[in-house]
Write a protein that binds this DNA or RNA. Sequence first.
DNA 1: CAATAATCGAGACGGTACGTCACGTCTTCTT
DNA 2: AAGAAGACGTGACGTACCGTCTCGATTATTG
Lengths: 202, 202, 202, 202
Amino acid sequence: MSKNGEITEVLTRGPGRPRSEEARRAILETTLELLQKTGFNDLSIESVAAQAEVGKATVYRWWPNKAALVMEAFVLAVESELKYASTGSAEAVIRDQMRRWTKVFRTPLGKVISAVIGAGQSEPEMLEAFRHYYVQPRRVEARKLLREAMLNGEIRSDIDPDTILDLLYGPLYLRLLLHHAELTPELADLVFDIVMPGLKPR
Amino acid sequence: MSKNGEITEVLTRGPGRPRSEEARRAILETTLELLQKTGFNDLSIESVAAQAEVGKATVYRWWPNKAALVMEAFVLAVESELKYASTGSAEAVIRDQMRRWTKVFRTPLGKVISAVIGAGQSEPEMLEAFRHYYVQPRRVEARKLLREAMLNGEIRSDIDPDTILDLLYGPLYLRLLLHHAELTPELADLVFDIVMPGLKPR
Amino acid sequence: MSKNGEITEVLTRGPGRPRSEEARRAILETTLELLQKTGFNDLSIESVAAQAEVGKATVYRWWPNKAALVMEAFVLAVESELKYASTGSAEAVIRDQMRRWTKVFRTPLGKVISAVIGAGQSEPEMLEAFRHYYVQPRRVEARKLLREAMLNGEIRSDIDPDTILDLLYGPLYLRLLLHHAELTPELADLVFDIVMPGLKPR
Amino acid sequence: MSKNGEITEVLTRGPGRPRSEEARRAILETTLELLQKTGFNDLSIESVAAQAEVGKATVYRWWPNKAALVMEAFVLAVESELKYASTGSAEAVIRDQMRRWTKVFRTPLGKVISAVIGAGQSEPEMLEAFRHYYVQPRRVEARKLLREAMLNGEIRSDIDPDTILDLLYGPLYLRLLLHHAELTPELADLVFDIVMPGLKPR
DNA sequence: CAATAATCGAGACGGTACGTCACGTCTTCTT
DNA sequence: AAGAAGACGTGACGTACCGTCTCGATTATTG
């Protein structure tokens, strides 16, 4: 993310004016706003700096390029969304996760996520960051539950849990990215109900 | 695509020097080449014109912007790939289609397709073109087979055939776009085998 | 001027469609019109062709460049103005010529003439044409009269007649080109009256 | 000239990187050089920027168009030439000025001046600048001397001093612009000698 | 409490690509 | 053959951002 991790910044700080937290926030918020409004391609650092009322060099001092900036803005937008807790059986939790996703995808954040994936097709580190900061953290719990269900004999154990998650989320992502059909909680249920039988042990 | 459809161009042509087919081909081929090499973002019309040894104005005369140009180049690249024929049962044909896809996605064309979808997140008409020129033509046969299978009672008839195709192809697209795992014919088989049971009539 | 002199064109003509006199006239008239309206720099052959409803190639077929075209338009505009006749003594005739000039300079033709001289600062052949088609023909009579007056002892004979004409017309041209003061027949008289004493034999 | 007058620029300067004096000089010098080499029409801002090793935007930041740029270059070239001093009677001083002019007109600066007047036929503000920055400053002294000579009864007082200067310099400008005869100090003397008798009180 | 140092905003800098316009040439059909 | 129509490669136009730089001003730590 930013050049200095938070810990070192607090404990040992050299002389000189400290980084303006206000500027940082303004830049990231403006980035998110413009990202939703104009998309990744038309988002210029020039316009971020102008709208955030910040010097252009201040942006470049902390983020090496547009991708890094957008990435951090994206992470900021997405991290607050992680605080949830589902309870119940493995199947109930995953089904609940999937439903929640379809709802998140329909907020402005959905536009940000598809913009990030889109930009990632040109910028590999963008994609890497998306997987690292978004996909993986969200799969942790589901993966654990799937493994437990495999041990319990509730689902087939000859398939990689991540592949199962690809099967469940792939159709949702497809609609997010291709816009050829609506993305609804009902679709999440349908996908889940169709895929599950195939996961039962024979 | 181009301003004049081919038919009217042949039958009734006004005065004036006709469009140079050579220039058109050079531009589209160069576009494809650069698209694979540098991606959508770094592809500049300036460089296309230079490498195709064509005036920049000639590009702008026929394509209003980069998206339109890339779109037509994409269609050109993709249309020759449509000529195939699978035979057998509905399930056999669809399984075969899916396997073939995973192979196409690994050629340079795969890079073009993901670039198009990526760019489409910023440019709606790009996405529209992708759906219209790529997705739909390829789904025609599968959709027909699925409908027949529904009538025969081989698969559930309470699901939209396109949604079924989303279920089958979504996981493949996910790997194409997120690059988090490999895209293999075996994956196609696995997806097919897991999804199919859920489609059987209860 | 045009590639083929008029005589050969009439006497020996090859096969093929003859040159369109209508197009020629339309081009030259449009040129004059645009020359007065927009000046030499902003006059484009593209716009001449468009406004004259003529193919661009037709312009280039007969005139090698903008300068040549403007030159011929200028000559056309100016040649009708040559038909006059002054009578009387040398001094009376020259004074009359000078007065007439100041009047011509104030018509739209004056704008054309100053545009031609202006353009001539960049294009030598333009200047050459101006001198050949405008200045020289108009000086013929005055020069003859001056020489006679020298022989008669009315004016000094130790000065080149053309230098005398420079003395008389220089101040007028200066006002035409610098626009720092008005160009009036009275000025012509004043210049004449001041210069003449210095031309009397001592 | 430039957007900020020099005085305010020194006294009160806003924030931001200050204008590069080096770039300014390089641009103006390159402009002068190209103006003499290629004339006004063929001088492109693109080539000025390239040869001055300066971004094109830097030129456009400070000069709105080619005319403004050439004008300031012209003023720069001409202002150093003003520092001279003639002494003696009114007639001696003016004669001396005229001779000096014919010499200046034959240096590369002469080419610049005729280019400026030529361009001025299309661009009024160019002409305005020429009169304001070149003609007027140079006429100040001569005008003063002429007025004194009128009061002393040495020359007619019924003629506007500027008209007298038109009479003296008109013939010189005519040769500068029409190139039909050489521009020599002897011509300056001849013009002076012929015009003066007509200026004596009757 | 000064000196030092890193930050801030502002904005100019050398560049690159944009999309447009006119150049002068060409290739077609029509007259 | 010459006409109009109009596409061609070329190159300059004026604009927008890029990422870097240099200012004066501000805000912290250090001697």
